[in-house]
Amino acid sequence: MSTFTIFLALIIIVAFLLVVVIMVQNPKGGGLSSSFGGGGAGQLGGVQKTTDFLDKSTWTLATLLLALILLSNVTIMDGNGVGESKIIDSETEVETNVPAPVQPPVENPAENN
Score class of each variant (00 low, 15 high):
Met1Thr: 06
Thr3Tyr: 09
Phe4Glu: 13
Phe4Ile: 10
Phe4Asp: 13
Thr5Trp: 00
Thr5Glu: 00
Ile6Asp: 11
Phe7Gln: 07
Phe7His: 01
Ile11Leu: 12
Ile12Ala: 15
Ile13Cys: 15
Ala15Tyr: 09
Ala15Gln: 04
Ala15Asn: 11
Ala15Thr: 14
Phe16Asn: 09
Phe16Pro: 15
Phe16Arg: 09
Phe16Asp: 02
Leu17Glu: 09
Leu17Val: 06
Leu17Asn: 09
Leu17Trp: 02
Leu17Thr: 06
Leu18Thr: 00
Leu18Asp: 05
Leu18Trp: 04
Val19Leu: 08
Asn26Ser: 11
Lys28Phe: 12
Gly29Asp: 14
Leu32Met: 12
Ser34Lys: 10
Gly37Lys: 06
Gly37Ile: 00
Gly38Ala: 09
Gly39Leu: 12
Ala41Ile: 05
Ala41Lys: 08
Ala41Ser: 14
Ala41Cys: 07
Gln43Ser: 10
Leu44Tyr: 07
Leu44Thr: 10
Val47Leu: 04
Val47Gln: 02
Gln48Leu: 07
Lys49Ile: 15
Thr50Lys: 08
Thr50Gln: 08
Thr50Phe: 06
Thr50Trp: 13
Asp52Trp: 00
Phe53Cys: 06
Asp55Asn: 10
Asp55Ser: 13
Lys56Asn: 15
Lys56Gln: 02
Trp59Ser: 04
Thr60Leu: 14
Ala62Leu: 11
Ala62Ile: 06
Thr63Ser: 13
Leu64Cys: 03
Leu65Met: 02
Leu66Cys: 09
Ala67Val: 12
Ala67Thr: 06
Leu68Gln: 00
Ile69Cys: 05
Ile69Glu: 01
Ile69Val: 12
Ile69Gly: 03
Leu70Cys: 11
Leu71Val: 01
Leu71Glu: 08
Ser72Thr: 11
Val74Asn: 10
Val74Leu: 12
Met77Lys: 05
Asp78Glu: 03
Gly79Pro: 00
Gly79Cys: 01
Gly81Ile: 04
Val82Gln: 04
Val82Ala: 08
Gly83Cys: 02
Glu84Pro: 05
Lys86Leu: 06
Lys86Pro: 04
Ile87Thr: 12
Ile87Glu: 14
Ser90Met: 07
Ser90Phe: 02
Ser90Leu: 01
Glu91Arg: 01
Glu93His: 02
Glu93Asn: 14
Thr96Asp: 03
Thr96Gln: 03
Pro99His: 00
Ala100Met: 02
Val102Tyr: 01
Val102Cys: 00
Val102Pro: 02
Gln103Ser: 08
Pro105Ser: 07
Asn108Phe: 03
Asn108Gly: 10
Pro109Asp: 05
Ala110Met: 02
Glu111Leu: 10
Asn112Phe: 15
